[in-house]
């Protein structure tokens, strides 16, 4: 196959890639992010050209996606099984353990925002929305939790004890669901082990195996300890929410009060994310 003049050979591309890599690293090392960004774009382009020249079709994603329900439907299935608000990570582990296929984590993180947009544009046009859990004190959206709009408001309130009671509730429901299934899959076993490890008395079997009945029993015993206090928090918060919030707020939480521009700017500057 003859090569059109001016199209670089794989060797030339290889050299170019090596040079660009060194240049990007230098730019990053000297803190010159702008240059690094431009060089990185050039680098990716060169890599793509190399891919096309050398790998051909191999470079592009192989095979079509298997038809599977939309993400919101999958998340709804997992949440319904859990019966309590949950973080995206748990939602996707539950889906992977009990349903065919999986939910890519990145898709879940934007889900709540999309649902809110849809609700605000045309309220109650869908049978359910994936919405927020609300903090008991401020009735604001609880960080990183997904809930289902058709649940009673109390179920979506997060007081100081609620993360624990929700965790225990989920443990009981997953254990019971597993008991009715026959031989659990490795994913299911792994998930149950994670719960059992964190619940007193739930780890009874030999190392690495979890007895769903023991897990449910352990979780129930601890849940009895917290239930009453937690219920009181939830009910009083839910009453306040019904009194004070309009529909969208009730589902997606109270908006933050407007803040002065200065205070909001650079507010994460001291964030210790680079501590380790």
């Amino acid at each position: 196959m003859s090569r059109a003049p001016g199209v670089p050979t794989p060797d030339e591309l290889e050299t170019r890639i090596t040079e660009l890599r060194a240049a990007v690293r230098r730019a990053m090392a000297t803190g010159d992010r702008g240059t690094a960004r431009e060089l990185r774009a050039e680098l990716r382009a060169a890599e793509r050209a190399w891919d096309d020249a050398v790998l051909g079709d191999d470079a592009h994603e192989r095979g079509g996606r298997r038809a599977s329900p939309p993400v919101r439907e999958r998340a709804h299935q997992a949440l319904t099984l859990l019966g309590a608000p949950a973080a995206p990570k748990l939602v996707s582990s539950v889906y992977a353990a009990f349903f065919p296929g999986e939910i890519p984590g990145a898709r879940l993180s934007s889900l709540r925002r999309d649902e809110e947009r849809s609700f605000r544009a045309a309220p109650y046009t869908r049978p359910y929305y994936l919405c927020a859990a609300l903090t008991a004190d401020a009735l604001a959206p609880a960080r990183g939790l997904l809930a289902v709009s058709t649940w009673p408001l109390e179920q979506r309130i997060v007081g100081p004890l609620s993360l624990r009671t929700d965790f225990l509730t989920a443990a009981i429901r997953l254990a019971e669901h597993t008991a009715g299934l026959g031989t659990p899959s490795p994913e299911t076993r792994r998930l149950l082990r994670r719960f059992a490890y964190a619940i007193p008395g739930a780890m009874t079997g030999t190392a690495g195996t979890v007895d769903p009945a023991a897990l449910a029993e352990g979780a129930r015993a601890e849940l009895d300890v917290h239930r009453e206090t937690d219920r009181r928090h939830r009910e009083s918060a839910a009453r306040r929410a019904r009194d004070r919030l309009h529909d969208a707020e009730r589902l997606f939480g109270r908006r933050p009060r407007p803040v002065r521009g200065i205070a909001a700017k650079g507010k994460r500057a001291t964030k210790g994310k680079t501590d380790r």
């Binding site: 690293r25 990185r40 994603e61």
Partner: peptide, 24 residues
């Protein structure tokens, strides 16, 4: 670290897409 971020990470990601025995 700059090797990790600029070279290794994209190369591993490419491997993840293409699989064993690939040019990646």
């Amino acid at each position: 670290p700059t090797f990790d971020n600029e070279v290794l990470a994209p190369a591993i990601a490419a491997y993840d897409r293409s699989g064993p025995g690939s040019a990646a």
